[in-house]
Design a protein around this nucleic acid. Structure first.
Length: 816
DNA sequence: TGACCACAGTTTTTT
DNA sequence: ACTGTGGTCA
């Protein structure tokens, strides 16, 4: 084979493969084809990062190293070259191209990758799921074998197989944050550590930091001995105790999952070799958010073949508070001197104005790699900054804008409201409820953090793992079994001294003189658990779940107060739907498997793209998502940026990055809302508008609302009716801006506790024909007074029946 | 032992 | 505002 043939073959091969990815832009394609060796992909917001990941994996599976290697199959000759030339020239002839496709692919593939040789790591389950779905669409069923999952899920998978080498049982349970917290509270109490100087949260945070630095409690204590640090010594003791009890309960916390995996890979050469051999290609998404453990995890696993591709954006690093270090991405080129760097800077998501605003804001940060996103899109609408009177006005404005858009044929799901902290979502929820806007809150008090869910899951966990003391204690007296705190405490202490799990102690309760008082009850409880364990082995999970709810008396406990517990009962039912869908999606359908999945699960994964509903979530949760219309609320100093970062330039930069993330979620219209005064955490404050707003060029922004609040200077005699009928329509903004700053409560809750008809309710009654701006024509079918408002039911011609609050609805309706 | 009440502390973000 | 805790009383 001559050199010329070699060269031309390599060139043609790359062109053939490149043609498969013709839909991408040059940089994206570059990133897809650069398969070999370390690659740093700096992908700006909305630059098609996920598309690149998908196509990159597709390329690996189809062509292996074909596009990025000098290796040539033996026996390539002139005929093959001629064929490839012809094939490439056939671009506009589909029939010809199709005929040659198979041969071309075979000829160009070099050692195609098998799916399980790819490790693709993401941060959230949501991102992992999306990746899996899109891969399956592209590659078919074999895509299921790709290791596309979160750091934690991958760790669990590795640990389940090999953790016995560290002396742990492979059936370990996973403790979530709440579990860790209650365990730590216990420990601090037992160690007699004052909760003021040793808040459980900061102790846990310190332990988490130690684990991230790969320090076990001993190593941590050693560092404390040297420093003679009193605080550290106590925390070290708590750390040791914490790990001891986790161990006794056969449990790992979130940090342990990564920590143990890294330890395992470092100390067991065989295991390391196994996975290094297996993972020919490693991809890490959101690399700017990795912490030290995750960095080690990635480096170790990619260490065999050295094909590591990390994707990230230093401007979107927003998780420093949980140990993420932006250094990982900044140092990548030092770690791998031969690394290639590819930048994706073309944004396909946002309009020019939105992108311009985001660029202008992030420009104020020092210490970034430097990058300027650009777009081919038109400038689009300007951003809107609405300065609201207070949080109610803010919520009303958002609701109004959404209703307007819906009235023009838009979809609910095109809107997302983002805020800095969950506490800001309340007013919005009320406003959305009143106006009949379907919505979904992501995060906040999470489904799996609800007491009833934790209770039921605790039962399942104890059934699966009798050694799980923490969860056993949670449910030992729920529902009440006459095993009170004192009995439970005594039981716990006896088990501790005996060094056996509580469930074992219960089985041998007769051997413990100090437990005789509650022995009968304990035995009954122990029998219940035994019984459940037997049943669990005999029937499918969903059936067992029903049985458990019944046998434990948990359901009947809730049913004693049906009204009060309606939501709880519903939640428990909803958990069953989780079980059923788990059974459909997993091969083994085991209880353990279910608990694993649940332990790594968050509400974010619930975002159902098919349901048409506006969404609200924190700016953090919104990372990676996009929406046509975005509302950023609470854009005030002290809230965003939050008050705790005001004195700290580094923290401020993180906050600004968060702002960048938030701004770049919007595709076509961005509303920024600040309130002149806000009731938060029980206090009313008057915040200045956020500095981030000042950083956006003024000619990108249209201002609405009350921009220079001169408290008390405006006219005060605006009658209620005026306000109610005037509404919040976009045309009425000028009028609104003249409204006085005044506490609405003074009129919306008149001081008339002795009953009588509510004051100033808009005059609508049963039977009225109305036209609603968003929902069209309809008839009022019911009016129920509720407090100072009324709940009305309207049968709309096209929208079905809706229940709205009268005061809010009146602003949208006219009588026909 | 469990129900009820007052009180305080906490309100960033996630696996 | 809200929740969880701790104390008191039946």
């Amino acid at each position: 084979m001559t050199d010329a043939i070699r060269q031309e073959f390599i060139t043609l091969r790359r062109e053939v493969i490149a043609a498969e990815f013709a839909a991408l832009n040059d940089m994206q394609r570059e990133a897809v084809l650069a398969t070999e060796g370390p690659l740093l992909l700096l992908a700006g917001a909305g630059s098609g990062k996920t598309t690149v990941l998908i196509n990159r994996i597709a390329n690996l599976v189809q062509f292996g190293a074909g596009a990025d290697t000098d290796r040539i199959p033996a026996g390539v000759g002139e005929t093959d070259l001629a064929f490839l030339r012809l094939y490439l020239a056939s671009g506009d002839n589909p029939a010809l191209r199709q005929a040659g496709a198979t041969r071309a692919r075979e000829l160009c593939a070099v050692n195609p990758v098998r799916p399980w040789e790819i490790l693709a790591i993401t941060f959230t389950n949501k991102a992992a799921d999306e990746l899996k779905i899109r891969l399956e669409n592209k590659l078919g069923g074999s895509a299921r074998d790709i290791w596309a999952m979160t750091f934690h899920a991958a760790s669990v998978r590795i640990l389940r197989r090999f953790i016995d080498r560290l002396g742990f049982d492979s059936g370990f349970t996973i403790y979530d944050t709440a579990d860790s917290q209650s365990l730590m509270k216990r420990i601090l109490k037992d160690l007699n550590l004052d909760e003021k100087s040793f808040p459980y949260r900061s102790v846990l945070a310190e332990i988490s930091r130690a684990k991230d630095a790969l320090l076990n409690s001993k190593a941590y204590l050693e560092s404390a001995e040297g420093a003679q640090d009193y605080r550290k010594r106590h925390i070290g003791a708590a750390y040791a105790e914490y790990q001891k009890r986790l161990r006794a309960a056969d449990a790992l916390d979130f940090d342990d999952l990564l920590y143990m995996t890294v330890k395992l890979l470092q100390s067991e050469p065989e295991v390391l070799a196994h996975y290094q051999r297996q993972f020919r290609y490693v991809l890490i998404d959101e690399y700017q958010d990795t912490n030290n453990l995750q960095y080690l995890f990635s480096s170790l696993l990619a260490g065999g073949h050295g094909n590591i591709c990390v994707v990230g954006d230093d401007d979107q690093s927003i998780y420093k508070f949980r140990g993420a270090t932006i250094q990982n991405i900044l140092n990548f080129e030092h770690q791998y001197p031969d690394a290639r760097v590819i930048r994706l800077e073309q944004n396909y998501r946002s309009t020019g104005h939105i992108l311009g605003a985001a660029n202008a804001v992030i420009k104020n940060n020092m210490g970034r790699k430097g990058k300027n996103l650009w777009t081919e899109q038109a400038d689009g609408e300007k951003l809107t900054h609405y300065a609201a009177m207070n949080q109610e006005d803010e919520a009303a404005y958002v609701a109004q804008a959404i209703l307007d858009h819906f009235g023009k044929g838009g979809k609910w799901g095109e809107h997302a409201v983002l805020y800095r902290m969950n506490a800001l979502s309340n007013q919005l929820e009320y406003a959305f409820k009143r106006n009949g806007i379907p919505y979904k809150v992501i995060g906040g008090t999470r489904f799996f953090d609800r007491a009833e869910i934790k209770d039921v899951l605790a039962y399942l966990a104890v059934v699966a793992n009798p050694a799980d003391d923490l969860r056993l204690l949670r449910i030992i007296n729920v529902p009440a079994r006459g095993i009170g705190q004192t009995s439970a405490e005594r039981l716990r202490e006896s088990s501790l001294t005996a060094g056996r799990p509580i469930s074992e102690t219960i089985q041998h309760v007769r051997d413990y003189p100090e437990l005789q008082r509650s022995a009968t009850k304990l035995i009954r409880f122990g029998n219940l658990l035994e019984d459940l364990r037997e049943k669990a082995a005999q029937m499918p999970l969903d059936q067992f779940y029903d049985l458990l709810l019944d046998a434990t008396g948990y359901l009947s406990m809730l049913q004693e107060k049906p009204e009060e517990n309606a939501a709880r009962i519903e939640n428990i039912q909803e958990l069953k739907s989780n079980i059923v869908s788990y059974m459909q999606n997993s091969e083994d359908g085991s209880l353990k498997g279910f608990l694993d999945e649940i332990a790594l699960y968050t509400d974010l994964d619930n975002l159902d793209p098919d349901a048409d509903a506006a969404v609200m979530m924190t700016m953090h949760s919104a990372k990676g998502l996009e929406f046509p219309h975005v509302y950023l609320v609470g854009i005030e100093e002290g809230i965003f940026p939050g008050h705790r970062v005001l004195g700290d330039p580094e923290e401020m930069e993180e906050e600004r990055r968060l702002c960048y993330v938030a701004l770049t979620r919007a595709k076509s219209k961005l509303h920024l809302i600040s309130a002149n005064q806000r009731l938060l955490f029980g206090r009313t404050t008057a915040n200045q508008t956020s500095r981030f707003l000042e950083e956006i060029p003024a000619d990108y922004v249209e201002k609405e609302g009350i921009h220079r609040p001169a408290y008390g200077s405006a006219s005060w005699d605006v009658s209620f009716d005026d306000e109610a009928q005037g509404g919040y329509s976009s045309g009425a903004n000028t009028r609104r801006s003249q409204m006085p700053v005044r506490d609405r409560k003074s009129w919306s809750h008149p001081m008339s506790p002795t009953g009588g008809a509510p004051q100033g309710l808009p005059a609508f009654q049963k039977g009225d024909q109305v036209t609603h701006k968003a929902f069209g024509r309809g008839m009022i079918t019911d009016v129920q007074p509720v407090g100072n408002d009324a709940l009305i039911e309207i049968a709309f011609d096209d929208m079905g029946t809706k229940r709205l609050m009268l005061r809010a609805a009146a602003k949208q309706m006219t009588k026909v």
